[in-house]
Design a protein around this nucleic acid. Structure first.
Length: 573
DNA sequence: GCCGTTTTCGGCCCGACTGTTTTCAGTCG
């Protein structure tokens, strides 16, 4: 059984234990175990084989045994046992805002509600009113929550949420009552998808800020409206939460509301062990505030290096900050040029010339053009003749654009048998080749892994494109043994793409650290299908940061001259 | 469930808001 499946089952157990009303610390242990296992990816199986699971902090004897059983047999007796206690569709009820495990359990045990549909029916029949703790208002809210759940999946792309959040922040910043503003929550941590928008502002007039917030254009509904905290729903269905604090409290509150929950929990425990108390209003020794004007000072007061928001997932960052071994994360300015840009020759929206001008205007020192290869008929892939014509066009354009180095490339389909889409003599004519899977997703893991490994081992390949094929919120990755693929990439000096398109963000940040540890270089590519798409690189940098990558770990931080040498060396290898 | 430079047992973070509760539980982050 694969790591993400094991993680799902551990999360499932945590949810079931919550429904049962079990020990909250035990529940937390299962949740943390799930997160650790998901981050292990294909390393999980060898760790189980070698009996080394317990070396990961947070996995003890009991979890180790259960994970081993899952990996070896694909089942877990304990999980099966728990599952028999509740109907499977009951989990859907937990996704309704305002419904937690306690209320869901009561709905099930007293009304026999087992699914969203049954709950909706029970609401329509006013049956919730007979239950203690439920009234008119909660019944109406639940009905609304069910409608919302039907319309959206409850999660949104980072890029969409960021755009909405920045508009809200700008409107708040314009208020004379507001001094500082910031993004917070999962958006600030740069999660690839988010459930809501968290905003923080400092002000001496919180009530006025709240009034302004709930009345902003774009607000479709006010969910909560308190003295220092309000929640609204935007027309898009996205929920936005705003918290107001004093300016003195701002850094503490910013840390608090950035999270993650898991990171905060550990940090507050750390504070407590040092005789301190930590909350959104400050860091205290007894009643005395330890003054901090930035988050970095708060970390310092706890004996930690400054932890960038992207890393705050309780996945090793606190230990690294204690040991003064946090990575110097890559920044947008480190990106010297980009690969993976489409033009109107295949399925891009803008011409070659427009793409080149746009890349130069963005300050990139080089641009790698890679339209689709000939088998990609849906995308108007290039025949050999059209490849040659495009090369002539690029040569001509290079004359007119000395400020940017143009590299001739192709995004070659990886055919079903793992071969590339042109004969070798044509492939040799490119400066670089991105090899990508675009079809036949239904293979077994063994077949797909062999297919990708074979493609990587072709000497013409420079970069493996969108390595897992995931489409956020719509399609899971195809089955693939990523560890074998990464090892093959290392062996054949192939960079692995971190596809920066906000719908992909593939390679997933959870696997970036492992790729780096295996000596694999990642290439942050916009996969641009328009001039605007070239800027998507920033989303890729966000994911790279979240994946602990530094400048040295990323392919396209090389200067244009270095890159020219790198590509030539690869060709003559 | 996990964990230990106090500990192998007894801890394990903290506060705002809502709704329905007449003093607080549940949810959320």
């Amino acid at each position: 059984m694969k790591a993400h499946e094991v993680g799902t089952i551990l999360s499932d157990i945590a949810a079931l234990l919550e429904l049962k009303g079990d020990n909250p610390f035990k529940i937390r242990a299962y949740e943390q175990g799930a997160r650790i296992v998901e981050g292990l990816g294909d390393q999980l199986e060898p760790l189980v084989r070698e009996g080394r699971l317990h070396e990961h902090k947070g996995i003890g004897a009991a979890l180790s045994e259960k994970i081993t059983e899952l990996v070896r047999t694909g089942r877990l007796a304990y999980h099966d046992e728990l599952r028999r206690e509740f109907p499977p569709a009951i989990f859907d009820l937990l996704k309704i805002p305002g419904l937690g495990p306690k209320k869901v359990r009561r709905l099930y045990q007293t009304l026999g509600v087992r699914s969203l549909g049954e709950l909706e029916y029970a609401c329509v029949e006013n049956r919730l009113l007979t239950l203690d703790g439920f009234g008119e208002k909660s019944q109406a809210n639940i009905l609304e929550g069910i409608q919302l759940l039907k319309r959206h999946q409850g999660r949104f792309l980072f890029s969409d949420a960021l755009e909405a959040a920045e508009a809200l922040l700008a409107a708040l910043q314009a208020s004379p009552d507001v001094s500082r503003t910031s993004l917070a929550g999962s958006l600030r941590r740069r999660m690839e998808t988010v459930k809501d928008i968290d905003l923080l502002v400092s002000s001496d007039s919180p009530a006025a800020v709240m009034e302004r917030f709930v009345a902003l254009p774009g607000v479709a509904e006010v969910i909560a409206h308190g003295g220092t905290k309000s929640s609204v729903r935007l027309g898009s269905g996205l929920q936005a939460d705003l918290r107001v604090v004093s300016d003195r409290e701002f850094p503490y509150a910013l840390h608090h509301f950035t999270g993650s929950k898991e990171h905060n929990t550990i940090l507050r425990g750390l504070a407590k062990s040092r005789g301190l108390k930590m909350n959104e209003y400050g860091l205290f020794r007894g009643d005395e505030l330890i003054p901090c004007s930035t988050e970095a000072e708060i970390f310092a007061a706890l004996g930690l290096d400054d932890i960038p928001p992207e890393l705050r997932e309780n996945l090793g960052e606190i230990e690294a900050a204690q040991a003064r071994r946090l990575p110097d994360l890559i920044a947008e300015r480190d990106i010297q040029g980009v690969f993976h840009a489409h033009t109107t020759e295949s399925d891009g929206r803008h011409s070659l010339e427009a793409m080149v001008s746009a890349a130069a205007a963005l300050g990139y020192r080089y641009l790698g053009i890679s339209d689709h290869s000939r088998s990609a008929r849906y995308a108007n892939g290039l025949s050999i003749e059209r490849v040659r014509a495009q090369h002539r066009a690029i040569d001509a354009l290079q004359q007119r654009h000395p400020e940017i180095v143009l590299f001739k490339g192709i995004e070659s389909d990886i055919l079903a048998d793992g071969s590339l889409d042109y004969p070798d003599d044509v492939l040799d004519g490119f400066d670089f080749v991105i090899a990508s899977v675009h079809s036949r997703f239904g293979m077994t893991e063994e077949e797909m892994t062999a297919r990708v490994v074979k493609a990587i081992s072709h000497p013409a390949v420079t970069i493996l494109g969108h390595p897992t094929g995931q489409l956020l919120l719509s399609r899971d990755s195809y089955p693939l043994n990523l560890t074998r693929v990464l090892d093959a990439a290392k062996m054949h000096h192939v960079a692995v793409e971190l596809n920066a398109n906000p719908h992909r963000l593939d390679l997933d940040w959870r696997f970036c650290k492992d790729a780096r540890d295996r000596g694999v270089t990642l290439s942050i590519n916009p996969d641009a299908h328009s001039t605007e798409g070239l800027s998507d690189t920033r989303y890729g940098v966000g994911i790279a940061r979240k994946g602990w990558l530094t400048r040295a770990d990323v392919f396209n931080t090389q200067s244009a001259d270095q890159m020219r040498r790198t590509l030539t060396a690869k060709q003559t290898r």
